[in-house]
Computed example of a mutant assay.
Amino acid sequence: MQLHQYSDTKALNTDFANRLVTLLNEAISQRGRAYLVVSGGRTPTALFNALSETDLAWQNVTILLADERFVPVDSADSNERLVKANLLKGKAAKAEFISLYAPAAKAEAAVATILPRIAAIPAFDAVILGMGEDGHTASLFPCSAELNSGLAADAPAVLAVNPTTAPHQRISLSLPRLLNAGQIFIHLVGQSKLDVLNKAQAGTDVTSMPIRAILQQPDVDVAVMYAAN
C-alpha cells in the first residue's frame, strides 16, 4: 500500500484525475476498452466533476459502481444518480454505465438480474473505493450477516447486503470481484479517515474492519489518496 498525501482536496483531485486518465488510456491502447469502478458518497463528487472534463476516448470506457443502495435510480440516496449527475456529463457523457440496480421487492431478488451484467466484464483497470468510520468498504459492512459471504474467495461477483448500522439494503461487488483489478485506489478526506486507516493497518481481523481485506492483500497495488481537508 502506498499513501499519497496532498495539501488539499483540489490538489488531490487534480493528480487523481490525471492518474486515472493515464490508466484508462493505457487500457484502451492495450485492449480497446477500459473499465472503471467508482464509489458513491460526498467525497468523490469533486473528483467526478474534474474527471468529466478530461480528454479521453470516453466512448471506450465502461463505468460501474462498487456498491449501490437498493433504491430507485431517481432517489436522492442513489449512487447511480450521483454518478450520472457528476461524472457522466461533459466529455465523459459518452461513457457506458452499468447499473447495480434492478427493480424487485428485495435486493436479494434483484441479484439474479444484476449478475449477468457483471459476468462479462474482464478485470477492472481501476477501482476507486471509499472507507467508512467503521472500516467498511463498498457495502461490505462489519455489521452485516452477509460479510463472510462477500469476503469468501468463491463469492459471486455481486451480493445483497443488509447493514444494521446504515440505511437501505445494498447491492455490493464482492471482495474477489473488486480484487480482479489492475489498480485499487482508496479515496479519503479528513483526519478522522486517516485515523481509521491507521487503525486498520494496525490489526488483521478483516471481519471487524473489512477494508483490511483490501489493504493487506498481496496481489493488487493499492494507493491511498488522502487530503486532510
Rank of each mutant, 00 (worst) to 15 (best):
A110C: 10
T54Y: 05
P218S: 15
L188M: 06
F48W: 14
W58C: 05
L197Q: 10
M209F: 08
P210V: 00
R117W: 11
V21F: 09
R19E: 08
D77H: 10
H4C: 07
L215V: 07
S39Y: 08
E96T: 09
Q169T: 10
A126E: 11
L23R: 13
L82N: 12
A138Q: 12
G190L: 03
G182F: 03
K84L: 08
Q201R: 13
A85Q: 02
A181M: 05
R81C: 11
L140V: 03
R117Y: 13
A223M: 11
F70G: 03
V71F: 05
Y101V: 05
A126K: 10
T43Y: 02
A152S: 12
T207K: 06
T54F: 04
H168A: 12
Q2A: 13
R170D: 00
N49M: 07
A105E: 15
D134T: 13
N18K: 14
K106L: 13
A213N: 00
I63D: 01
S144R: 11
A166G: 03
L140K: 08
P122N: 08
V73F: 07
A166N: 02
G135C: 07
A95L: 02
S149W: 11
R177K: 15
A126V: 09
A85F: 04
V161F: 06
P44V: 02
A157F: 13
E133D: 14
A109I: 11
N60Q: 15
Q216R: 02
R177M: 00
G40L: 07
